[in-house]
Structure formats: C-alpha cells, structure tokens
Simulated scan of single mutants.
Amino acid sequence: MKFRSTRNKILLYFGIAVFVFIILVPIYWLFLTALTPRTQLFSVPPNYFPDFTLQNFRNLIDQVPFLAYLTNSILFAFGAIILSVILSFLAAYGFARIEVPGSNFLLFALVLTMAIPEIVTVVPLFQVLRNLNMIDTIRGLVMVMGSVLVPFSVWVLVTFVKRVPVEMEEAAIVDGANLPQVLFYIVIPAMKPSLVTVTIINFINAWNNLLYPLVFSSSVRAKTLTVSITEIFQARTPYGRPWELISTLGVTMVVPMIILVFVAQRGIVSGLTSGSLD
C-alpha cells in the first residue's frame, strides 16, 4: 500500500512537471526572442543565452505609436470590464431573485449566445456603431466588448448570487435599507471573490481581443496594442517576418497579465472554489 501511494505521488509530480514544462517553454522562448539581437536570432546552433538587448523594444516604439495604442488598450479593457461587470451583476441578481415565468429559458438563451462566433456578428455590429457614430471610437469598442462579455459573466455570477442567503437581505430591508443599500452593503461584499474572478477574466479577454479593435477602428485614436501586430507584419526582413518585434509585442501584452494574475491569484482561486462546497 505504501509503495502504491509513493508511486502515485511520483506519477502526479511527473505529470505536473511535464505540464509546467509545456507551459513555460513557449513563454521562455517568447522572452528570449524579444531580448535577442536580430543578428543572433537565427544562429545555428541556437543560442539559448545570447547577448540580451532592449533594442527590440526601442524599435517597436519607433515603428508603431506604442504609447497611444497602450493608452487605448487600457481604456478599452477597463471600460469593457466596468460595463460588463455592472450589467452582469444586476442581470444575475435579477435572474436569481426575481421569479418570473420563462426566466430559466431567458438565462439559457443568454448563455447560448456565447456559442455564436464573434466573426458572425461583425457586420451587424458595424452597422449599429455606424448609425450611432461610434466607429473608430473607444466608447464604441467598449460598448461592443462589454456586451460580448455579459453572457459569460451572468452565467458565472447567477450561481453565486443564489448562494447569498435571502434572509440577510430581508433582515436589512426590515431595518429600513433600500435595494441599492442591500446590494452595496450585503450582496456585493458576500460575492467579492467571484466578482474579482469575473473582473480579471473579462479584463484578460478584453486586453487580448484583436477582432473588434481591428474591424471597428481605423486610426490611432482607437487602435489598441493588439492591432499593432498587423502593422508590424508589414515590415519584412531578410529573415521573413520581424519575429523579434512580434515577440517584443507579445511580451508587452503578456507581462501585465502575468503581474495581474500573480497579484490576484488568491482572489481568483477563492472565486473559483467558493461555490464548489456547500
């Protein structure tokens, strides 16, 4: 029995090591390429410890309006998560607390919209934004991305709203609290881990989104960092594509996500597991 337990632990740790290796090697290669001079990028045999340089970052800033795109990405991502989380929380609370005929069907239909490919909705969304004079604007991108994130957020949050005891809300109402006070002082604090998790997931989705900024923006005032990868591709090199600049852009996109997940990892784990046990 002891031998079997030791063998299972060894197999488990080996599987974890293989998984971590598969995950970390591409990230290591991404950073390595971003910090490697172009002349050493395709050396044979490969040089895993080249003369590191920051010239690739300077070249990236010179080739695209980096600061403008970065500002747009931040505004786009934060605007999308604020809009999506607020709307999703209110919708989830309504689905969880208001008993109306067909509410389950409406929730199912809302969740089912996640199965629709984003590319299918591009043309009608473009027409809507054009009619609202929101083409090539951050607010237009925020409205589109925020609405896209709502179904997933509602699906996640409605379960956690149902786990908040109704008696707590009723006691607060008896004491004279109104609905906004009940939501702000009782429901939201009780759902803090799940709200943090949904916020981070939505931020990652918005930060990495390429389709909507690419289609609905045409100038520097609305383009995001993800769009710049299409502009980098226009500059060919003797090695084909400018892989060092592409990797540099990848690093600038990945680093904020790594920092965010590292800082908020406890909140993410708590939000994902708080509803697993009663």
Rank of each mutant, 00 (worst) to 15 (best):
A96I: 07
I10E: 07
W243K: 10
A34W: 05
I135K: 00
F49Y: 14
M191N: 02
Q181E: 08
F126A: 14
L125A: 08
I204V: 12
P242M: 02
W207L: 08
A172S: 14
T252E: 04
P117V: 02
A206G: 10
Q234A: 14
L149M: 06
S228Q: 05
S103Y: 09
S103I: 11
L210Y: 10
T6D: 14
G102F: 06
T33F: 02
A235E: 09
L272W: 00
I22D: 05
W243I: 11
L54F: 15
P165M: 02
V111E: 03
P180S: 03
N8F: 11
D175P: 12
L179E: 08
I204W: 04
K2H: 14
S88K: 04
T71W: 15
L110H: 02
E169W: 06
T230K: 07
V251M: 04
L87K: 08
A109F: 05
S84Y: 02
S43N: 08
S43L: 09
M168D: 07
G267C: 05
T39A: 09
F105A: 13
K2Q: 15
F152A: 03
V150P: 01
S73E: 14
M253W: 01
G102R: 07
T113I: 03
Q63V: 14
V263G: 06
L157G: 03
R236Y: 15
L179Y: 14
P151V: 11
A92K: 01
F262H: 10
Q55I: 14
A264P: 00
E170V: 12
A92R: 00
G146N: 01
A96C: 11
V158M: 11
